[in-house]
Nucleic acid binder design. Structure first.
Lengths: 164, 164
DNA sequence: CGTGAAAGGTCGAAAAA
DNA sequence: TTTTTCGACCTTTCACG
């Protein structure tokens, strides 16, 4: 069986350190990273460019605080969409900016939608809108124990110990 | 009724543009942002510092590609944890790096845990571990329609039109 | 991958709006 | 209070080894 399809990018320890620093603060200077990994800023820049080209690293963004911006209500909505309604559903759900994420999942419901709203009234209204696509089940978040981590997992990155 | 408790930070149009540019690429220079908003780099820096101090902006991070790093399986696990087990559950769940997020939610299950694993075997093993805390129901993601958006929503930011 | 020089970006003080 | 200007300093980029 050909396992080549499953191959992904190897990151060495320096790449991991660079990613870790960028995850912590994407605006650190190449010089500071270089000092940490004992390398020139130029070499660090080259590695970052390589990871961007490979697609392991997709870019740099901000950590925003939804609560501070008034988005107090976070909820997950399970939705059962029939196959014939999906063509209409997809563009609709993409247009709603309160949707944080929308996944197709296994189980009784076919969609799991994460949303953010300012008030429960706004959430209720949105859930009402969804009814035209199918049955819903809503779970409202009232506390978050582990906050969204986009991190990579160091111990999962060791593969391909042999070279080609 | 005092509504002061609900007040959050006002962002004007320039702040919104700055945030939008930083969300798109957190490593853009202050000069480039300044050119876009017709302002000096220094003034842009001052606004960013202010948003960081206020907490609206929490920092800068990377957009990583979990698939490229071998994290193919994404799943949501509903878990019913009894109150007396929570003291044990919280530190455990925080220590598992495959956990992307863990929320306390309303409904039949008290926890909704988002995870990433390399294989379904790894996921199965984790779900097995969770059984000691209570009943689980797992939904595996097989496609994502709307990808995680950390963005703020422009139309939600207009409040306090009157000045104090 | 490192070096060094040129180009470009950032920071802080002072002044202007 | 917020923004601009300006100089000093810091960072990035690129050609070359």
């Amino acid at each position: 069986m050909e396992k080549k399809e499953m191959i992904y990018y190897r990151l060495d320890e320096v790449d991991e350190k660079i990613l870790a620093m960028l995850q912590d603060n994407a605006r650190v200077s190449l010089k500071d990273i270089g000092a940490e990994v004992s390398m020139s800023p130029t070499a660090v820049g080259t590695r970052i460019d390589r990871m961007l080209a490979e697609g392991v690293l997709e870019g740099f963004t901000t950590k925003l605080n939804p609560e501070a911006m008034g988005h107090y209500i976070k909820a997950f909505i399970n939705l059962e969409v029939s196959p014939e309604q999906k063509a209409e559903f997809y563009p609709y759900i993409d247009s709603v900016l309160n949707v944080v994420e929308c996944n197709c999942v296994t189980g009784d419901y076919s969609m799991l939608i994460e949303v953010r709203f300012k008030t429960t009234a706004d959430l209720d209204h949105f859930v009402g809108e969804l009814q035209r696509f199918g049955k819903t089940k809503t779970q409202i978040v009232f506390s978050t124990n582990v906050k969204h981590r986009c991190r990579y997992w160091k111990n999962d990155l060791h593969h391909d110990e042999e070279k080609k």
